[in-house]
Amino acid sequence: MSRTPTEPPARGIEALPGDLMMWVLIVSELLVFGAGLLAFMGVRLTDPAGFAEAQSHLDRTGAGLNTMILVTSGWLAARAVAAAESADTARTRALLAGAAALGVAFLWIKWLDYAAKGAAGITFETHPFFTFYYLLTGFHAVHVVAGIVILGLVAIRPRAPTVEVGAMFWHMVDLVWVLLFPIIYLLGAGA
């Protein structure tokens, strides 16, 4: 992705790194999650006490750990892109595998969280908080699954552009989580 110094620097949309269609997808996803989170914050105003009570049932530690897992996984994916750009296939594959493995770890912890909710009889309909909780984290978890599959697919024949596209999807999943986690799990927790 480095440019020769004689080329004039690209401007506007031409300068966008990676595949344009992946950016279209990323922006679309961010709009959906952003709207969902704003709606969550808006509905929260109607029942602050109920939301705080509902939130106290969440596994904050597990979710905090999951943030670090995803951020680290993103780091591995970003290094996989660099490895693919220097045509180091073995290293690219190893880094992608590491990123995907951390994705699986994320899902495992998320699953424990869901299982605990299920055991406590908490469903979509229990409280508006949990409608948003299941919708937003569930939708995110589906993207984690998709991301793991995508990382696996690009690892089969790891060329730099495809690895970059896969990693971009993975970073989007990461980005959504760092916004979703504090809003759903942490806001108002100390009160």
Binding site: M1, G12, I13, A15, L16, A77, A78, M168, L175
Partner: peptide
């Protein structure tokens, strides 16, 4: 604010958006 900072780092470094300053 911390989440905001994290999002900016992911956008500009992981997703390399800093290569396209306008966007």
């Amino acid at each position: 604010t911390l989440a905001w900072g994290k999002a900016q780092v992911i956008l500009n470094r992981y997703l390399r958006l800093s290569q396209a300053p306008d966007i």
